[in-house]
């Protein structure tokens, strides 16, 4: 039996397995279809139907169940999610598991299409060390190019997305 206790381990291993079968496009398709369109279809429904309220409901349940360190805030026309202790990446780091070169991309890989379908654009940064932030706005709403958050400490490898809807919209990947 394949368990859920070490799910993040075999999930990450699967990305590289899929890459080896074909290419990164298959990995991106997996995130979009199998995760965003299939296993997380309840998130898609919630966010389509309830917008920011649906985002709050979804992440309150999911991140609490996964025991994440996180905060959500809703401002004027924006929903923000800050994760300072990602349980998923944290599991991989603690167990020294890395098959696929950018595990963190899987999140925007499935959230991107969910948000695009629901009419939202994404600003996002992740640092590959278990910290990231997200801002969701209605498509067409302007936003500044993301500035680095203070908790994205130096010497981390930070990826930036601006008005994005998927992993291919990565704007920059910087090593400070």
């Amino acid at each position: 039996m394949i368990g859920c206790y070490d799910f993040c381990g075999h999930y990450e291993w699967t990305f590289q397995w899929l890459h080896d079968q074909r290419d990164d496009d298959l990995v991106h398709q997996f995130w979009d279809e199998a995760i965003g369109g299939d296993s997380q279809s309840h998130a898609s429904k919630l966010i389509r139907e309830k917008g920011f309220t649906g985002m709050g409901e979804y992440w309150a349940h999911t991140l609490a169940e996964e025991a994440a360190g996180y905060a959500t805030t809703q401002g004027d026309g924006v929903f923000r999610l800050d994760i300072n202790d990602c349980p998923s990446k944290g599991f991989l780091l603690r167990n020294n598991l890395e098959q696929y070169p950018d595990y963190c991309d899987h999140c925007i890989g499935w959230i991107g299409s969910v948000m695009e379908t629901a009419g939202f654009a994404i600003d996002h940064q992740h640092n590959h060390c278990g910290q990231c932030w997200w801002e969701f706005r209605r498509q067409g709403t302007p936003s500044d190019t993301p500035a680095k958050s203070p908790w994205l400490f130096r010497n981390f490898h930070t990826d930036t997305f601006h008005l994005a809807s998927g992993p291919k919209d990565k704007q920059s990947s910087s090593h400070d």
Partner: peptide, 9 residues
């Protein structure tokens, strides 16, 4: 573990 992950598997 979180049971939601069974759906992803």
């Amino acid at each position: 573990g979180a049971a939601d992950f069974y759906f992803a598997i």
